[in-house]
Amino acid sequence: MTEPLFAITDRPISVEDVMKKVMRPEAGAVALFVGTVREWTNGKRTLFLQYEAYVSMAEKMLAQIGAEIKEKWPGAKTAITHRIGKLEIGDIAVVIAVSSPHRAEAYEASRYAIERIKQIVPIWKKEQWEDGSAWIGDQLETTAYPSGKPEVKEE
């Protein structure tokens, strides 16, 4: 059985498993991005996070990011897994693996993938602090979507 390249899971993520999905003879590089749960943000202590997703659409949007990468960097192959549910400090929330013939494309595409995840993939995190909790919108609360739809970011 072939594992899907783009997945939402409620289980711990194996970095190696995600990496293996993009390894192939044509590749001379694999860039890995691992997003983890941070304890301190601007002096405020996080106890744990709760991630929620619109799972079916989130997996489609991750696949769309993979397709966008293929268009921009034709030699690149992408796999992304994002975890949901309760995550503790230090847990892995997301793993992005991009392989390509040469390293430059893999680095660039990996950065592109995480920025796009933060724009279009329907996943939300709820921060639990010592003195309360809140759903986090876009990280700086500065992005509005006047059209009701995220704009496609150009290079």
Binding site: G35, Y51, A53, Y54, M57, A58, H82, A93, V94, I114, I117, K118, Q119, I120, V121, P122, I123, W124, K125, W135, I136, G137, D138, Q139, E141, T143, Y145, S147, G148, K149, P150
Partner: peptide, 23 residues
């Protein structure tokens, strides 16, 4: 994703998606 002017049809599933915070 759909814009405000997009039409709706019988049987559609419409999701309201607050600003996302994955990653």
């Amino acid at each position: 994703y759909a814009r405000d002017e997009a039409p709706l049809h019988e049987g559609d599933t419409v999701a309201f998606i607050p600003p996302v915070s994955g990653g």
